[in-house]
Design a binder for these strands. Sequence first.
DNA 1: CTGTGTGCAAAACGTTTGCATGCCT
DNA 2: AGGCATGCAAACGTTTTGCACACAG
Lengths: 138, 138
Amino acid sequence: MKTVESLTNTLKANGMKITPQRLMIFRCLEGNTSHPSAEEIYKKVKEVYPTVSFTTIYKTLETLRDLGEIAELTLDEERKHYDPNTETHHHIICSVCKKILDIFDDFSSLIKVPNAVKKDYTVDGFQISFYGTCKECG
Amino acid sequence: MKTVESLTNTLKANGMKITPQRLMIFRCLEGNTSHPSAEEIYKKVKEVYPTVSFTTIYKTLETLRDLGEIAELTLDEERKHYDPNTETHHHIICSVCKKILDIFDDFSSLIKVPNAVKKDYTVDGFQISFYGTCKECG
DNA sequence: CTGTGTGCAAAACGTTTGCATGCCT
DNA sequence: AGGCATGCAAACGTTTTGCACACAG
């Protein structure tokens, strides 16, 4: 799990600085399974640092993503979502409210990469997107 | 397979009109397995109808998507891609050049929807996104 | 002190919309 | 003739960038 401490250490180890804004972003991410968007993180940080800018949020998320500390999810075509859990796992997104739920079942032994694909691509992994509607929306 | 003819018939059956621009879009889509973006279709149509607008491309793609004639793919976070094959299938996208390859293997018997998911969502299906790098980029 | 981070404003990007005109049926 | 389609320009929401200033190390 990505903790405030581990994120801090990783940034320091890469010659980057720890600012109050960044610490607050780390706190928003720690143990967060709600797959927040940049705006959701912005709002949270803004509660404590009212002058924080989107620039800072986006730059920090980009930094964390480039360091492999968070995953950038493309399940919602409207906006990107961020996930501090970078272990392989799967998701289901509600087609109405866009709520994303984690699925930790391991399907790796069941899914064989077809040979036709191996011929043209080097496959690093796969991700299953289930789709449907959550009980609140359905 | 979605042919120019079947697309034409579907639109007519829904009280919609067949214009030269639309016919050209249909021709771009027929048998197309390259998962074109709106811009790629725009460029193709523009070769023949230089005054065509993005509005027309987007509106027509939206119409076809709403009629279930094409699928809108979200695999590339930069832009949407369109697929005239609306049968269930899977994809691999090259993380460098974004080239998308179809995978027609049927994994449906292997993938069971976890009960924890069934509790909160009505699941309509799933889609596997393989990721990696194509031989040209790797 | 040095250089990385911040925040404002503006730009960029893909996409959507309002509206007057065009043209398919 | 009627109504859907077109195309221009402008708006949109998200994300990125240029730049001057601030501050962590």
